[in-house]
Computed example of a mutant assay.
Amino acid sequence: MITERLKIRKFTNNDLRDLYNLLSDEDVMEFIEAPFSWEKTANFLNSVALIDSPLIYAVEDFNQKFIGYVIFHEYDKDSFELDWILNKGDWGGKDMPMN
């Protein structure tokens, strides 16, 4: 999905470093879980993001810079989960054009 502000796409193996930088950040992970190691990030990428029916999608800004990911999947038979995990530098959307 592409808008003038964001691109939401499937992850690729090339996203490992950006994903690690996101998930190893203590501030980003403060209310989620302990920051990830490189190995845990690689396992997460392979078991959750690169599967045929992904649970998470990479998010890029309008300059094609990785800013985080969105979680979207069926949670149970009556509901879905929708969450955003964003790089600390992108909190607040200060570089995002507002319409």
Rank of each mutant, 00 (worst) to 15 (best):
P97T: 07
P35D: 12
T41F: 09
I8D: 04
M29C: 04
E60H: 06
M98Y: 11
I8C: 08
S37T: 15
D61W: 05
L82I: 12
F44P: 12
K40I: 05
L23E: 04
S79C: 03
P54V: 01
S53I: 13
D18C: 05
N99G: 10
V48W: 12
M1E: 05
L23P: 04
N21Q: 10
G92N: 11
R5T: 07
L82Y: 10
K7S: 08
I71L: 10
M29Y: 11
L16E: 14
T12E: 15
L45I: 09
S53C: 10
R5Y: 07
I51Q: 05
A58V: 00
L82K: 07
G92H: 11
T41I: 11
D78Y: 15
P35A: 09
V70P: 08
F72Y: 13
M96R: 09
L23T: 08
L45S: 15
S79M: 00
D18L: 02
T3V: 10
I71H: 02
A58Y: 01
Y20V: 01
S47G: 05
N46I: 00
Y20N: 08
I8Q: 02
E60D: 12
Y57D: 03
E74A: 09
K65G: 01
I56E: 09
S53E: 14
L55S: 11
N13G: 12
M96P: 00
L22V: 08
V48L: 02
D61R: 06
R9A: 00
K77L: 13
L55R: 15
K40L: 11
L55D: 07
I85C: 07
R9Y: 03
I71E: 12
P35N: 10
L50G: 11
K94E: 11
F36I: 06
N46T: 03
L22E: 09
W38R: 13
F66V: 06
M1L: 13
V70G: 08
L45M: 14
